[in-house]
Design a binder for these strands. Sequence first.
DNA 1: ATGCCTAACACCGTTAGA
Length: 264
Amino acid sequence: MRIATWNVNSVNARLERVLEWFESASPDVAVLQEIKCVDEKFPVEGFERLGYNVAVHGQKTYNGVAMLSKYPMEDVRRGLPFRNEDDDEVDEQSRYIEAVIGAPTPFRVAGIYLPNGNPVDTEKFTYKLAWMRRLQAHAQRLLALEEPLVIAGDYNVIPEPEDVANPEAWVNDALFRPESRGAFRALKNLGFTDAYMQADGAPHGYTFWDYQAGAWPRNLGIRIDHLLLSPQAADKLQGVVIHRDERDKEKPSDHVPVVVELSL
DNA sequence: ATGCCTAACACCGTTAGA
């Protein structure tokens, strides 16, 4: 079972590139971030033509997440709950989608677009940290189900100095601040496995390179797109591939796809 | 040096990303 995450930086601006990738990489399930469109503008037909079911949690202009699956999706959840699972308070930012994948061995996938949080002296950083607390609370409830579970997406957290080319330049950035790294560690320490670290673990496994200042040719990247596995999923981990080649294509996203293989 | 790209929206610049 191949499960992918990709921040596409506008699904419509990049549709041809994204569909090409889906055709060649052929993930069974994929979560997309920063689709940057409302549900009605999501290019459903292109994905359906490739055999995918589509679930979208869109938003005008900013954010927006989607899940594509070759298997039926059940119990689709759009938006991260605030206090408990029945809370009907809604996030005005579309950053979370979750579904049970009706494969022969069913499993659960969540797709997240965690807030960036910059600049750190603003309410944006507060919102990021609050969102991470909400994610941790929800993840804890999901772990209690003792299912194979993958929480995949753009975490906007650089976990360790080995995950960035020049750590000094990031010390006061929301992606690398101790509060963000601590919250990511706390989430992981609930019992998740970072798929990349487990299956590969080579330092500098970047997934994002800024469009500016020649970050890509100079390989000044960061590793911020992660797949966290519940114990029941981690037991099935076969491998992880970062699709770096995508960054070198014409009109690329600034993120590249990350794919895990699970023996589900 | 807080811009250097890129995208969306709506206006011909602003906001946001990371």
